[in-house]
Design a binder for these strands. Structure first.
Length: 269
DNA sequence: CTTTCGTCCTGACTGC
DNA sequence: TGCAGTCAGGACGAAA
């Protein structure tokens, strides 16, 4: 479930706890998550100081003083918790970082779709997972022009295109549905119909860009508030009345690419 | 090149 | 009450 807003929230927490701290001890409590840990994972991390914790798409990157980067993905159920000295661990606590400050950072991931690996400074740009990622939706340069280039030749439905991390980085199943709802665009609409034949953005694409940015900004803000409650307008609300004033439609669930999409067939076109 | 599909994993949930 | 079956999700590699 972690998409860009949840990962950004985790980044800010880790940034606060880990920056300037030295990693004293690393414990991997099983041999693999999604992938096996590199054989020298713990030794290479130990005694290094964390310079910063960054985010790219749904990846977290802890930069170390050596220039190496601890690359982390939360998969679908991953998350961190911070304890002081003596923590109790459960069976899904897979990686423990003991810091020089006395804080202990614990990575928990029941479904183990997440992973961690350690990259040499020179390998970061070329890393398989990072090299192909599309633009960051909250960056200043992300706009209709960039998105037009990515969508222009796409024949897939909008929902599928926006879920592709090479088109735009960081959206997942939930926020794609939410953004399309805000933009009043049907998830079934062909991606290329938001772009003219000459490759310039149509007005609907401007709406979509604004909707994506708004939905992500609000979601990041919401992380600090009601993390338990679902603040979603359409996601997982099949059968409910469309919340848009005067619409009267019913939120509908369809399956696209093997995943659920939620939308209002009345106001999303 | 683009697009689709199966796979990994566990917990929550449904139905008998 | 128990147990089998289904579903959810992100990324990736294989196949079309």
């Amino acid at each position: 479930m972690p998409e860009l807003p949840e990962v950004e929230y985790e980044r800010r927490r880790l940034q606060r706890v880990m920056t300037c701290a030295r990693i004293q001890r690393v414990v991997t409590r099983r041999a693999n998550l999604r992938y096996a840990f590199p054989p020298d994972f713990a030794p290479r991390l130990e005694s290094q100081t964390v310079v910063a914790v960054r985010r790219r798409a749904k990846y977290l990157l802890a930069e170390l003083e050596s220039g190496d980067v601890l690359l982390m993905h939360l998969g679908m159920s991953g998350g961190f918790r911070v304890a002081d000295g003596d923590a109790e661990y459960d069976r899904h606590d897979h990686v423990i970082f003991e810091l020089s400050t006395g804080a202990v950072v614990i990575f928990n991931d029941p479904r183990r779709f997440g992973f961690m690996t350690l990259l040499r400074a020179d390998d970061i740009e070329s890393h398989r997972a990072l090299a192909r990622l599309g633009p960051e939706p909250l960056s200043a340069r992300f706009g209709a022009a960039i998105l037009a280039r990515a969508l222009g030749r796409r024949r897939t439905p909008l929902k599928i295109a926006l879920s592709d991390q090479r088109v735009i980085a960081g959206l997942g199943n939930i926020y794609v549905s939410e953004a399309l709802y805000r933009a009043r665009l049907s998830p079934k609409r062909r991606a290329s119909t938001l772009v003219t034949r000459t490759g310039t953005p149509r007005p609907a694409l401007d709406d979509l860009v604004r909707a994506i940015k708004d939905v992500l900004r609000v979601a990041i803000r919401n992380q600090y508030r009601t993390r338990a409650a679902d603040p979603f307008l359409v996601y997982d609300r099949e059968g409910e009345r469309c919340p848009r004033r005067g619409c009267g439609g019913t939120i509908t669930r369809i399956v696209q690419g093997g995943r659920s999409t939620f939308y209002c067939p009345v106001c999303q076109r």
